[in-house]
Amino acid sequence: MKKILETESKTRDKHILVAVDPSESSKRAVLYVADFVGGFPGFTVTLLSIINEPGEDFFETDDERKIWISNATEKSVTLLGKYRQILIQSGFPEEKVKTRVCVDAPGSLTELILSFQCDLNCCTVVVGRHHKSKTEEFLFGSISSRIIHDAKNCAIWVVE
């Protein structure tokens, strides 16, 4: 009986992961979550910003690289703070809106987002759709296209 109650408690506490960047489409994704779920009880949101670090080849010195990362982190923290406020204003309790900044040089941003989804046990991942040209998607890939193929055991919301 105790086990069942624990399971129920977990399923009631839905955890949504929103992966954001400074784009307008990411902003739309946050606004969508605010509009759709804000004010309802039983939801936790983690806002995730991944800083795609270019790697040592792109910097003259290690100091230059560290400064780049520091600036990018600062921008991400500001952005996440702004989005966090949007969600709180939409009715999420403050303690239910978390933020994460991750600095990495990933082979695939999708893989990294899904590893966070797995670690945080999120039932839903939300991303904005960037409307890339075919050429751009061909050369550099698309997170929204790939994530809907690669995700397992969760729902994906791709916000137009």
Binding site: P54, D57, F58, L109, L139, F140, G141, R146
Partner: peptide
């Protein structure tokens, strides 16, 4: 040469 990649690190090589 290196290029700043986004979602697919090796897309340009495959191209």
């Amino acid at each position: 040469y290196n290029y700043l990649h986004y979602e697919n690190k090796f897309g340009y090589d495959l191209f």
